[in-house]
Design a protein around this nucleic acid. Sequence first.
DNA 1: CCGTTGTTCAACCTCGGGGTTGAATACTGC
DNA 2: GCAGTATTCAACCCCGAGGTTGAACAACGG
Lengths: 118, 118
Amino acid sequence: MEDRLSKVFAALADPLRRDMVARLAADDATVNELAEPYDVSVQAVSKHIKVLEDAGLVRRSRQAQRRPVHLEAEVFDLMTAWIERYRRQVEERYRRLDDLLAGEARSDTDTDTEGAAS
Amino acid sequence: MEDRLSKVFAALADPLRRDMVARLAADDATVNELAEPYDVSVQAVSKHIKVLEDAGLVRRSRQAQRRPVHLEAEVFDLMTAWIERYRRQVEERYRRLDDLLAGEARSDTDTDTEGAAS
DNA sequence: CCGTTGTTCAACCTCGGGGTTGAATACTGC
DNA sequence: GCAGTATTCAACCCCGAGGTTGAACAACGG
């Protein structure tokens, strides 16, 4: 599992990590703060954060002996790009299928403009 | 791992499965067709498809003895919704931070310009 | 009816993810 | 320097994911 996208998806496949991301979206937090609501050890949470970090979803800064975790927003773009690409492709397929069916139904009247292909 | 979103992310965490999704976005395909380019067994591919199916990403129809796999586009919406939600939240934070800094900058020059640590 | 093709089921193996606990490390504040 | 706090490292356990092979189960096609 070396590629970035795999790491990102894998990181978000865990509900606990998704919850952390949700909380970090609201504000930065330290490991202990993050661990507090859950009934797992702080070490476990630290590992989770490492997973998120390796995926590029968060960054750990350094501030005294604390290591506040900060959500890195850019990665979302990576996912969105991947998802949207195939979503569009599928929608395109549907559109063409519709066109095909429409064309067969009434062999005339050309459907128009698609546009907006990003 | 019961919840939908976890299944979806986990399903897409595998590069092979993502590749299948990519191919399925272009067109439906059977297990054997899907398995052909890879050097894993057909059984393994069948398992992968099951994972995608359990996540609601694909559907298997029935057509003679073949079981064409069809990509289900709606799930993408689920992911996009999740992602966008937190992306927006983070952007909102940045926006408010900018406002705050702009406001404080006017009062005095004690702002300590963090940031720029990339 | 029987062989062929497409697909899944079953048993098995290995490896890594997520959890634990206990010790080490990195800073702070006195 | 030393106690105290925050975090990570290390070693360990357990289980599920992904791979294999071999057999079973459809559904055609002769």
